[in-house]
Design a protein around this nucleic acid. Structure first.
Ligand SMILES: [Mn+2]
Ligand SMILES: [Mn+2]
Ligand SMILES: [Zn+2]
Ligand SMILES: [Zn+2]
Lengths: 138, 138
DNA sequence: CAATAATTGCACTTCCGTTGCATGAAACAA
DNA sequence: TTGTTTCATGCAACGGAAGTGCAATTATTG
């Protein structure tokens, strides 16, 4: 039983062949992945299967969904031991307007914001847009 | 010539009857407005006209588009003298998970974030999700 | 007035996300 | 092992929202 299989089982997901492939794919990419990206990468698999796999992974906290402002949902593996719901785990995301890629900046947490009276914060999403390190030529 | 007509002309938009109505509608709401909201409010007008009016308003800096994570574009009037592009004008937005309304918190600017080397920030979007003042009963 | 330009309305398309239902594979209980 | 149940996958379709081409209407200009 491989590492990935163990990880999936620990998270309560049956490690099917398809799911292991999808997990591997997400692991080797260091950018956030859209459903369409996966369709292209796994032309043999059905779009729905990929979709539902991502949803399952999300439910089981294997991936987190990223809204980068493009109106296309992206996904990335959670950090080991991350708890996506907790405020202290909310890192920011960077979307490059040049290469259109989105990355997790897991070291950069979203700063705490003081809200007006009556507002109760439960979640936060911070996306910075600009030019990424690869595209800025550094 | 009314205040609204003057405002529109100053921004380089011809003040048609339709546009004045739409401007008024946006002005009297203190929440961000989706295209569908406008369709309901102006059942007589065509969806495309409302759509293109919002796009025109956006281009001319009369409204700014808001991405609140619902994947439905919303719009709100810009503050007088605001320059939506400038970083210092980037305020945060609050989306209530209870009433599903999104508001501009124009007083709350997005804090400056230090990015890793090579990353160039050009824009930022910060959305806080939770319970708004009306829904939290304060 | 006629000529021109801008606005509006209608029809249609595309894209992404989502769901219902049938089939196939794996786990389980006898 | 066999039958039963549960879960995963595939196929087909739907829905909402954004966006476009073009014709009709309205406003502006000379
Ligand atoms: Mn992330
Ligand atoms: Mn705003
Ligand atoms: Zn880039
Ligand atoms: Zn509310």
């Amino acid at each position: 039983m491989t590492e990935i299989e163990k990880t999936l089982e620990n998270k309560g997901v049956r490690p099917t062949a398809m799911r292991i492939l999808i997990y591997k794919y997400l692991a080797e990419k260091e950018v956030a992945i859209a459903l369409t990206d996966m369709e292209n990468a796994f032309s043999k698999a059905d779009r729905t299967t990929l979709y539902r796999t991502l949803k399952t992974f999300e439910e089981k906290r294997i991936v987190h969904q990223i809204d980068d402002g493009t109106n296309i949902s992206k996904y990335a593996l959670c950090e080991p031991g991350c708890n996506c719901e907790m405020e202290q785990d909310l890192h920011l995301h960077f979307h490059c307007d040049n290469c259109d890629e989105t990355v997790c900046l897991t070291e950069h947490k979203i700063p705490h914001i003081n809200l007006p009276d009556g507002y109760v914060a439960e979640n936060a999403n911070l996306v910075i847009k600009g030019i990424c390190d690869k595209c800025s030529g550094q």
